[in-house]
């Protein structure tokens, strides 16, 4: 008897039909706003090298509603990234004698402290201009 196996090549839409795959691609999609955010940082550094006036222009540009909306999206993406990333850390970091749950908790606490430190440092070194500019 001859064989005639049926083959169904994967379609581009494979991820639409299963919630686990949709969650996975949402996690990967956090890279898009965060990539643009990294480009914003590069631009800021470049404008800084052009002097104080150029740097001030850059700061003013970032006050535009469009950029504020973008940064709100970037914060959400980064929080989702952090949550999903730390969820997976115990699978890679296996330390005998320390449970995966403790490793996850440790990273969650470290992330809260880390973000708080950055925010604290920013508030100390960049005095807010009272909302006016």
């Amino acid at each position: 008897m001859t064989r005639k196996p049926y083959r169904a090549p994967q379609r581009w839409s494979w991820w639409l039909k299963n919630p686990a795959y949709r969650r996975y691609l949402l996690r990967e999609a956090t890279a898009l706003p965060l990539f643009i955010y990294a480009l914003v940082l590069v631009t800021g550094l470049y404008r800084y090298t052009q002097g104080q006036l150029a740097f001030t222009r850059w700061l003013e540009a970032l006050q535009a509603p469009g950029w504020l909306v973008f940064h709100a999206v970037a914060v959400a993406a980064c929080v989702l990234h952090a949550a999903t990333w730390i969820e997976l850390v115990p699978k890679l970091l296996v330390v005998p004698g320390i449970s995966g749950r403790s490793i996850k908790r440790g990273h969650q606490v470290a992330a809260l402290i880390g973000s708080a430190l950055v925010l604290g440092a920013a508030l100390v070194s960049w005095p807010l201009a009272g909302g006016a500019s």
Binding site: N18, A20, Y21, Y24, E28, L88, K91, L92, V94
Partner: peptide, 24 residues
Amino acid sequence: TFVGYCSEVCPKDVDPAQAVNRGK
């Protein structure tokens, strides 16, 4: 790419995603 679904469906709780990524 650490989709992780392999570990969700494993009927013996082997956690292949952990193994593959420790392999990395």
